[in-house]
Design a binder for these strands. Structure first.
Lengths: 295, 295, 295
DNA sequence: ATAGGTTTTGTCAAGCTTTTGTACAT
DNA sequence: ATGTACAAAAGCTTGACAAAACCTAT
């Protein structure tokens, strides 16, 4: 036979019924074929290439356009084994962003349903929701997202996360009390942190946005939690409360999350700073308190 | 399951053999049918309505006068779906109050689960959740409930109601945009109102607490809702926004809910006041906009 | 997202018999399709879209107007039935049964999504999934359900429950090792039991159907669980293993769940019997081991 | 039942862009 | 062999229109 089946373009053309020009166009435009080259630069095709051109022609006959037909022909042998069932996080994030940008709640919800069926809460948070939120924040700062979009998106995501949170107060694990400082309305990060802790077996008592320190005090007194977490985006909310917070820190293991987490005064008073990604911080907290021993 | 409004009057006519004019007359005269309306004002009937018209025709064929026939047809399905309420609402309310007062999330959640299994959303709202919230407000004013309790309870109830709200943006009925005025953080009543409207076939676009008027404007421009509902507990939040709100009222049918609903200035500008219980007000809105027809 | 985007509008038109203009109008007016776009902006449709257009055309042929037909076609796969009238467990159970009987996975999944948004895992299990399963078993015994239906239904429910189970090995709470005895293929009850324990803060190590006792022994030796739960529907599976099970019971706190739970021999050896509803038994286990103290 | 006005929906057109097979010059 | 060009086919968006189906009110 033809050696081990090395074809030049004319022969490939004859066997497949596709003109050489077109074969080159398909190569250039869709990367359909990636022939070896002879020393003189001639294209050298393998029998697999004949096959692939055949698949391409089949899809064309089915009515598909060239670009799509080529994409499928390529996928046919690359992905033969691993059908990419896994949803690529970036793709999901983009689609989520698109749906929310257009104020299309049903689509956003359907998307989240699909994702949740495939993925842990941790992954949902750290790969999709949290990156999306920080991206949205950036776009908002650059003036590319409107207040309306930001508002709409967070209200839907809040609803969704609270749905996942149902029953997080139940169980036997260590307990955390979670609250936003007075004046702080951004609770999404805190909810995410609660969910991450919950996934690690903790019990959550959640007070929500804009919680008076007195409230936190009262609830903590009753629950004797293993950790009290307060969240604030700006140090301005923390400063006027320093005395109360120090007092609280004397009675309970206290942590500060969000943008204002790194507060030297409080760290000196033994308050744990949780400035980063809620999921990562949840891991850190679990590790720390595990070492510290229970009770 | 079956509750959707899906047939227009022509199709209902074809399926029942009753002329559209007559169907409208029966609706006007005897209230035989109470179809949803499309945003343009078209009547939308459910499969149950086909059934009911059939019953009516049966009675007519038996020689009954139209008025009696209609009365019987109406009675027939009122009795058909008698959801037996096993749980005494007050008892549930008390138990809910007790669980939440003690910061016992698991018990509260379990209780709500049990209630939901036995009762419609309407009943849950008007017999349990709303009375509980107003009672809690009263106790709080009298100093008998702490901020902590109020905070904890609303955060759990919010999560629960938002869970029920899932999918409320989808469907066919008229659309309502719901938002709290800037500065307003109490969103529970508004969510309840949204759920009540939803149970009446409406589609909800929910913006949540503390929404800039600009946001409401933008979203309303996109969705062209049949009604925009703003919520505020205090008139102080309304006063500074009067010009914007008047402008909004010129472009959309506008309503004001919550404690600040009765604002003479705005009522003069054609803004609907919804000061009362969300479920009752939802009924009123449905009735009003039905009469008003579209636009 | 939508599987693959593969068809351009002309081809979709040919396959569905709907003109491209009309397809675009349906997209614009009702959001019926949400095709991907090529980099140049061409619409790319998936095979699922062909299906959806078919559903739409079916509704049109039934006499529905386009807006309503589209809404129904959308609802078919997005799910979220429109008015959340009530979540009466029997109603949900019936609808679930109906969807599964017809092998309509999307509807079943959508229904489960909706219920999960409104209700705790505990309630989902004890009010819906478990009753449904036992009902299915009965019907099967009476020859009213086919093997195919039984198979289809349990595979979907298993998938769903395992989805909820994701991450259940994580955490700090007491640990349970769960396994079906050799020969036992019914694992749904055991999974439900695991979920119920998980909701109570336990950590789960799940071995699944048809697990050799030796495997259980080995894993238990490694994890030192607070409880080992074996499941079997028939006593015939238990009898030949009595010696091994007694040995296992000497090394670990052991329980037997499922139809074969009440085995006098084993109870004498200190094996806990868990014959009932998984959720109730989970409660019992938690109460028992709590009293028993740590260790 | 009729009259007069509105909504809904399929279709079409104009003006412009993308895609793709083929052709030509280097 | 490569790179560029080109023109036909297929798409895209916007806007408009008219027939059919509905609405209210008299």
């Amino acid at each position: 036979m033809e050696g081990d089946g090395v074809l030049r373009i004319g022969e490939l053309s004859k066997r497949t019924g596709v003109s050489p020009e077109l074969l080159r166009a398909w190569e250039r435009r869709y990367g359909l074929l990636q022939p070896l080259r002879s020393s003189g630069g001639l294209r050298l095709y393998s029998p697999a290439d004949v096959e692939r051109v055949g698949v391409m022609r089949g899809h064309l006959a089915d009515g598909l356009a060239a670009a799509e037909a080529a994409a499928l022909a390529l996928r046919a042998d690359v992905g033969a084994a691993p059908p990419p069932v896994a949803l690529a996080p970036e793709a999901v994030r983009l689609e989520l962003a698109d749906a929310l940008d257009r104020f299309d709640e049903p689509r956003a919800q359907a998307l989240l349903d699909r994702v949740l069926a495939a993925v842990t809460v941790d992954t949902l948070l750290s790969e999709i929701v949290l990156p999306y939120l920080s991206e949205l924040g950036d776009r908002w700062e650059r003036g590319e997202a409107s207040v309306a979009q930001e508002h709409f998106a967070s209200s839907i995501i809040r609803g969704r996360l609270l749905g996942l949170a149902r029953g997080w107060g139940q169980g036997l694990g260590p307990t955390a009390v979670l609250a936003c400082l007075p004046g702080e309305q951004h609770d999404l990060g805190l909810i995410a942190f609660g969910l991450a802790l919950r996934a690690r077996g903790w019990r959550i008592v959640y007070l929500g946005a804009d919680s008076p320190v007195e409230t936190v005090e009262e609830i903590s007194a009753r629950h004797e939690p293993d950790l009290v977490v307060l969240s604030a985006t700006s140090d301005d909310l923390v400063a006027p409360l320093l005395p109360e917070l120090r007092a609280l820190a004397r009675r309970h293991r206290l942590a500060l999350a969000g943008g204002a987490a790194a507060n030297a005064d409080l760290e000196r008073a033994g308050v744990l700073a949780l400035p980063d990604d809620p999921v990562a911080e949840a891991d850190r907290v679990v590790a720390l308190l595990q070492d510290a021993g229970g009770e």
